[in-house]
Design a binder for these strands. Sequence first.
DNA 1: GGAACGATTGAT
DNA 2: TCAATCGTTCCT
Length: 198
Amino acid sequence: MNREFYARDAEIVAKELLNCLLVRTSEEGTVVGRICETEAYTQDDCASHSFRGCTPANHTMFGEPGLVYVYFTYGMHYCANVVTGIPGSGEAVLIRAVEPLEGLELMLLRRGLSHGTRLAIGRTLCGGPGRLCQAFGIDRNHDGTDLVSGGPLKIYQSTSIVCDSDIAKSRRIGVSKGVDFLRRFVVAGDRYTSRVEK
DNA sequence: GGAACGATTGAT
DNA sequence: TCAATCGTTCCT
């Protein structure tokens, strides 16, 4: 995916990221997942980290489109975003869930789940932004890394683009402000989303 | 310097 | 439904 793909409105990118492949390489191995749930955040949105301007913690969000913005929350979880829009616009797409495709052993190991746990291959492995980051070994060291110019994280175009009628929109999860915006996008009926859409 | 608060998760 | 857990932000 080139930089022009990311240099568009967060809502557009959030929808087009559905069914794209998220790939994480490391010395431990490679893990791949199919993105099935995203959320859009813009600077004029009171629920967005960028709403109150650029700070040391969120400055990646104001950088080049195609950068990875990783934040730490609730004292124990990381969440990964893709920066979108023109540089400085302060918008991003939160990647909330993927279908685990490759490197399941490594994901289970990183998540602290036993190998035999068949149940873990459902939404509990990568369904949710914190779980996804843990399974993919993503932390604050990845904040500011570039998806476009090479690095441990990459996103590849899906073979099957999700048509608009197959995208379900809903309220975003876990936000206390901007609750009425329909800026959460999931592949309709997908089994691997963080929860069933309302 | 201190307090309040999370774009969450897992256990009860 | 609720505790865990700590960096960031904002107020004094």
